[in-house]
Amino acid sequence: MQPKVVTLNVNGRQHYVALMPNVTLLHALRDLGYTDVKSGCEKGDCGACAVLLNGAPVNSCLVLAWQADGAEIVTNVGLGTMDRPHVIQEAFADAGAAQCGYCTPGMVISAKALLDRCPHPTEAEIREAIAGNLCRCTGYGQIIEAVQLAAERMSEGSGE
């Protein structure tokens, strides 16, 4: 087994990194310092590791880093910072949607993917979009509120 230099474009930043083929995108990202991408189960059951891969929300634990060579990857920290949070991140904070916060980065990614294609989702559509993100703390109520709040604010043109 030999490593190869892979180009990972993460949150707009190019990383050239030598990786073995058996490294998942989850671990490659975390080793690059993107620890906002969380490990919860490593087999696609919990969604804590969700990232956008060329715009699609996926479990990064089920993608080999080599498979993401050259792809556009977005993680939660790429959407906003504490100084300039993304509308969705701010809405999650305001709605009390983050209790322990461990599922939150993956939740925000799924919410982003949803709002990108469906700016005014119904409650049912929100539930469906986050059905792959397990939360053990909130019962999902304030998370759904957060997505609705984000949708409202985005349509008011609060901007990113």
């Binding site: 620890t35 906002d36 969380k38 993680t75 939660n76 920290v77 959407l79 906003g80 910072t81 504490m82 949070p85 993304h86 991140q89 701010e90 999650f92 904070a93 305001d94 009390g96 949607a97 983050a98 322990c100 916060g101 461990y102 939150t104 980065p105 925000v108």
Partner: peptide
Amino acid sequence: RRVDALGKTTGTTVY
């Protein structure tokens, strides 16, 4: 809004 909220939602909080 809780003092720990924005850190968690922006992925800043370190676990």
